[in-house]
Each structure stands twice: as C-alpha cells, then as structure tokens.
Design a protein around this nucleic acid. Structure first.
Lengths: 343, 343
DNA sequence: TTCGTAAATCGCAGCGCTATGATTAGCCCA
DNA sequence: TGGGCTAATCATAGCGCTGCGATTTACGAA
C-alpha cells in the first residue's frame, strides 16, 4: 500500500503532547504542572489532571532527564546490602527519597575501592541527582571524578578525614573507646578485642584502634587483639573466643567487632562453661535483631543506621532544592551504648 | 560584549561527537563501538578507545535510553532489603546485572501491594529493561500495567499461581511440608508451628499451611499454630515459645516461620530449662548467618537466595539479548533441609 | 477607560544519543 | 581486471521532555 518511510521510530503510546491536547493547554504548561504544580492555575491544573488520568499518562523520565541534564536518580553505593547495617540505611534512604520521587540506584562495592570506582563511573553516566558512598576511603580517581562532576556527594557511616562534599556518620574510634571505657568501669582489667576482616573493613579496624588505645591508656589495664580474615559471623566468633581463651586464659572482658561475632562468643561460652558476665564481660557492636534477646542479653553499641539514612536523604533533598545554602557539610549522628546483661 | 542569545543550554563537557572527531570517525561508529564492539574494525576500535580514554568520555545513558526507548535499568522491588533473604537476592542480582552494565533500581514495598503498585508506576517511567517483583500477589492494576508494558517481568521467591511473565523461586507449602515430615521422621508427635506476621508475609503463611496440612494428614500426629502480628525477631520467638509451652505443655517439636524466631526459641528454652533436642525438636527456616553456630546448632531449611538472584539475572539477560526464545517461564530452585543438632 | 504590573501560559530550540537505511570500502574468485 | 558480495561506515531524523525568554491574560489603580 505504502512506500516504506525513510525513518520510523518506536514510541511511547501517550506523550505529554497528548495530555496537552486533551487538556487544551500547551505542552509547556503540562510540564510545568508536573514539575511545579503551584505555578499553574487551578483551572488548568484540573484539566491537566483529568487528562493525565484519562490517558493514563506516564512521564518518560529518560526524556526529562536528558532535557534537564540531570535525573531523578540517586546512586547509593555500599559495601554490601547483605550487611544489616547498610541494609537499614539503604532501606531508609529509599523510603525517604522515594517520597520525593527520587529513585535509588544500588551498587555493591564488596569492600573494594577499585570496584567502587567502577560503580561511580557507571553512576555518573546516569547524571544522578546525588551520589552516596560508604566511608571516606576511595581511590584518587573516584575522588577526582566526583569533585569534577559537581554532583552532590554524601559519604556515610564514617567521620574523620575531610569528606568529598557532605558526610553523615560517627567516629568509629569513639565507638571502640566507649566500649573500652565501659568495660573498665565495670571493673575489668584484661581486655580482649576480637574482630573479623579488619583488613577489608576499615571501620571495624578503626573501632579496634580506639578500643586498644583507650584501654592501654588506663593504668592497670591490658588489652590485646585477636583477629581473623574471614567475614564476621557467629561461627568465626565462636572460633576466636576459643582461641582467645587459650591464649589469654585470664582475660575478663571481650569486645567484639560486631554482634555476629558476639553471638558466637556467647554460644561458645555456653558450650565450654564460661559464665557471662561473671567470669567474662562481653560487648558487641551493632544491636542486631537478636542482640536484646540473647541469653544473656548482649551489651552492645548501637549505630543509628536509620538516622544516617534519613539525614543523608535530608541533605540531598536540601541540596537539590536550593543551590544557595550548601548545608552543614558534616553530621555527627553519634551512637548509643546499650548496657544489658552481658557486661 | 555579546547580545544575550535567545537560548542557552547546559551541556555535558565531552560528548560522543567529541570522541568521534578525535578518532576521525562518525558519531555513528562510536555509538556502534560502544554497543556492538564486534561490528567495528580493529583500526577504528583502537582510535575510538584511545579517544574515549584521552577525553575521559562518559556516555550519557539518559540520552541513550531516550533514543533507544529503553534504558539499562532493572527495577527490583522487594518487601524490604532489611530482610536478609531479599538482601541476598538483591546483592546477587546487582552483581550479575552490573557485569552487563545494567543498573539495579531498588524499591521497598514494605509488604504492601498498594505501595508496590506505586513503585511499579515509578519504575515504568524509567523504561526499564526489566522489572523484578517479589511474590506472585499484586494488585490488579500492577498486573495490568506490567502486562501492557511489554517489559520483561520476573517474580521471585514464590511459585504457585500463574506468573505475569517469568518466575524464579520455590513452593513454600513444600517447605512447610518438608519440615513436618522431618519432625515426624524424628519420632515427634505433637507438633507446633510458631510464626510471626503471617498476615502480611504471605509466604510464611504458605509455609505454615503446608506444615499443618502434612502434619495433620499423618496418623497419631497433632499440629497447632501459634502466631503473632509483629515482625519476626528473636524476642518474639522467645515470647511465643513461652506461650506455646504454657498452652501445649506436651508439645515435642517446634517449627518456626524463620530462623530469627528459632533463635529466640533456643534462648528461651535455655532460660526455662527445656533441652533441645531431647525434649523438644526445633526447626527453622532461612539458614541465617548464625544458624549453624547456635547452641545447639539449628536444623533449618535453606532457601537459595543467591541462586534465585543469579537465575533471575540470567532470565533477564537472555530476554534482553533475544526476543526469539522466551525462555522457560518458571524456574523451581528448590530448597535444602539442613539437619543439625536441634532436631 | 487606560495603563502598569504580576501571574499564567506558550513557542522554540535543543539535550546526546540510537535505529535505520544508504553508501562506501574491502576482498575473493572467475 | 571486474563483478558480486560482505563488512564497515556514515547521514539522517528524531526520542519526549525542559529551560528560557517571550507573550498573553488578569486585574486593580489612576
């Protein structure tokens, strides 16, 4: 019937133009209505809303992002969402940002700065509204890319050195220090720190540092560290406790790099008949779902994973809304010592 | 100096055109090189690669997505990534899809079909390469939107009714049935199922159904259920165990809706002096990080969260690569009974 | 009634890339 | 040496939307 047209293209069934036509306004007005509803008259708003509804219009964010040179996506890069800490933060951020119709794009660095750099490059391709990283350690290239990009950047879960742009978290040395102080106050003298994967998990290593420093600064108190390269788990915790007791039979307190380890310690103590807290005090980090229900209930330090998420989301939203006040750059969320039965 | 131009636009520093110019080829060739490297000659490839490197070109995926009417994003919607099961799957999918430069966009339905529907609408705005949902229950609108969209859809973690498009998971009734059979084989007669949030967590409810049905079909075996509306946790598990023992003092086996609950059961039994497995067998679901390290080690059923992720990613990639063979629609990943000390 | 001003609305010109079909280069064999 | 083919490359025409400035409308004051 027809000669083949030179060019044909796929298309979206309903576009903004269709909505405009039905609502008897220009596409510009529809666009305005979608982006800044307050700038459109009540009459027009009603007509446009009706048209959108009737046509089941779905905006094309790719087109919008291209035209605006920035998307409604926020790239969030964490070591792994398998880790309950980061899961909490990611979940909270998604909820907060989703409310403003911002999409969370997720990436896992698996504790590798190299991999993180790749993810940042990918993320930049999306012209994200913001990029969220975990920690303050990144490759030089990562830092350069982000500084050059002028995309808002938030670094989570760690304070200390200068952030690229904004940071939300707490000082991990302080966590270790707080744990040591607590154990000393409970009358303990021979402290042990047991940790997993301190090479990869820089923040766990910082906690260990703070713990050892504070303990050793105290008169009459000794502190040693026992570590293992495997990822933190209860099984590793149990193993390390056995090893620790063999090596330091007179130890009277154990701080664990996180609550998984501490759980293993508790179980192993049950097995070999060490009573907690009489003979051994135990303190963890994380306040995981089981920590309060252990036997004995685990004394631990709770990092505010959800607060970190909400604060990060807040910073991002403020930054997006106005270029003016570049918000406080660094937010210290603190952490909480929860004293329970194990110490 | 200059009259203001009518229009000015923001722009990306380095575009594909810049690369083309430096490499002495047309933009089309650069585009082709990026999408199908094999279709470009070695000479051109080298020149283009050099130019990309020298100019530090970063492709604009928004522009690409708009032109191609489909993006490199995969929307993944789970009840919550706080749940270790879904975290595992999400992490695995991100790794697998990231390898092919597909971006995971994350959404949390918080166990609400209504919220899931909103997330699906948002997702569709991005013209995703695929949409991944959890479970087979969705609102009618969700199903309609997805069917009309012609976007590949994968439903995870549950088999049973007809999927929208593809599905990867297992039968939760079978999980319950397997648990019941196992306990009966261990000589148990008075079985109890304790579960949390069975109203919201449809899959947990299915497991309970399968458990009760199989148990009650067995001669000489009784089975009761005890539930609680709060989210699963060790604390709830401990509470429910206490309640269960009061109500059914002669019960000799407990199946838990997941390992968090089971952990609470173990701790509570320790406290009130019930020996596991002598007096009471315990079986969980999930094989969480602590399950093998408990005291006693927990018998549980392991769902293959990682396998679900890899299989889903594989289906998506196959579907993207070719429209031809619409792959097997449903993949049953099965699950594994891990018998340990608690039963 | 007319004008000035603010509030609404509109028209234009792309954003940076890809799909398509057309064109050119490369190469084997007769 | 030329024909016939395949492999490479290219030019074109948008994809659907937004930012900007221009234009129109609304409305009270003079």
């Amino acid at each position: 019937m027809e000669a083949t047209k030179r060019h044909r293209r796929k298309m979206q069934s309903v576009t903004m133009m269709d909505v405009a036509e039905r609502a008897q306004v220009s596409p510009s007005t529809v666009s305005l209505y979608l982006r800044k509803p307050d700038a459109v008259s009540a009459t027009a708003s009603r007509a446009i809303a009706e048209a959108i509804d009737a046509l089941k219009y779905v905006p094309n964010l790719m087109a919008g992002g291209l035209a605006a040179a920035s998307s409604r996506a926020v790239s969030v890069i964490v070591p792994s969402v398998r880790n309950a800490f980061f899961a909490e933060t990611v979940a909270t951020m998604q909820a907060e940002l989703g409310r403003e119709r911002l999409q969370v794009m997720l990436g896992h660095s698996e504790y590798s700065e190299r991999e993180e750099e790749n993810l940042v490059k990918m993320a930049l391709s999306w012209k994200p509204a913001a990029i969220v990283l975990t920690g303050l350690s990144h490759t030089a290239t990562t830092r350069r890319l982000l500084k050059e990009s002028s995309v808002p950047v938030v670094e989570l879960w760690e304070l200390g050195r200068e952030p690229i742009d904004m940071a939300v978290g707490f000082y991990h040395e302080q966590v270790g220090s707080t744990a040591a102080t607590h154990l000393v106050q409970r009358g303990r003298k021979q402290l042990l720190y047991i940790g997993a994967r301190l090479q990869e998990d820089r923040r766990a290593a910082l906690r260990a540092d703070g713990f050892l420093r504070t303990a050793r600064e105290t008169d009459g108190v000794t502190a040693e560290i026992i570590e293992h390269p495997a990822p933190a788990s209860a099984a590793i915790g149990a193993m390390l406790l056995a090893e620790a007791i063999k090596k330091y039979p007179d130890a009277d307190a154990i701080a664990c790099s996180n609550d998984h380890i501490a759980l293993g310690v508790i179980f192993e103590c049950q097995r070999i008949g060490i009573s907690i807290p009489e003979r051994l005090s135990v303190i963890g980090f994380g306040d995981l779902s089981f920590s309060g229900a252990c036997n004995p209930a685990l004394t631990t330090i709770r990092p505010p994973g959800d607060l970190i998420g909400t604060e990060a989301a807040r910073l991002i939203l403020e930054r997006i809304r106005s270029f003016e006040h570049p918000a406080p750059q660094v937010i210290d969320t603190r952490f909480t010592l929860l004293q329970r039965q194990s110490s």
